[in-house]
Amino acid sequence: MATYIIRRLLYAIPILIGVNLLTFALFFMVNTPDQMARVQLGEKHVTEADIEQWKAERGYDQPLFINSEAEGMGTLTQTIFFEKSIKLLAFEFGKSDEGRSISADIKERMWPSLAVSIPTFIVGILVNICVALLVVMFRATSFEVAAMALCVMLLSISPVFYVIGGQFFFAKLWALVPISGYLPEEPWRFVLLPVIVGVIAGIGAGTRLYRTVFIEEANKDYIRTARAKGVPELTVLFRHLLPNGMIPVLTSVVVIIPSLFMGSLLVESFFGIPGLGSYTLDAINAQDFAIVRSMVFLGSVLYIIGLLLTDISYTLVDPRVKLS
């Protein structure tokens, strides 16, 4: 087990390097810092001096890979590649193009993100599983047909409409919750609507997926064995089908658990939650490349942790799996 985890962690290194190189290529080679500066400064009438100053303030005035002017290790370290990419590997995110510390921002903003994403995640899974079980229980009836038709419809609605609709009905028309915003002192009031919207938006896809898993499981031999033992249908469902069906379900959702930190771009920006999602979105709109780069890297790290957790979760829920 320990060797397995170590091996997986070692395997993560080339992937992180790959992510790093890719983002570096995207941000510094496809487009030069000069171009970024020009876009940031906005007007076409900027002078060379403006650009140089902009670059110098943000540390983009160094060479990409090799600084022939510096001495010793400096030839390698006083470069954009080292400053902006290698340091990411040590989780030194540096400063945003606006000059704020990105690490500090992340630490501050992850809590509102988690306040929304964790309840959405947990409630969402529970609701999807319950609906899926209900559908499996009534399989081959008109209830199933109706439920699945409803799921396709829910699935065909863009998540944006759920946000708009939720905000419109719950907040504006019925005034049950505030339309948007966030107060750390009483988060639940502001979190309620985003969570509801997030859960409803996921029901269509989630239920369909879990239903497929459960139906596949329901056709297996051991279910027939349980019935042949005289186990009542409900018990079959909960004692035999659910534990087995949960294996693929759990392991498929574990991968996104670490990414819950990142929040949701859409929900946070629409509901004015000051989390990492809206942070990223603001950075995108303000074309703050330093933040976008950091978030890309952070996202990859979290995903890789998620992959590792997935493998470990297999051993926890499935007695057949041993890591090696």
Partner: peptide, 14 residues
């Protein structure tokens, strides 16, 4: 009571 052809899959694996 009944026993089946496939002992490999007839028992609940978990």
């Amino acid at each position: 009571a009944m026993i089946f052809q496939e002992p490999q899959s007839s028992l609940n694996p978990v």
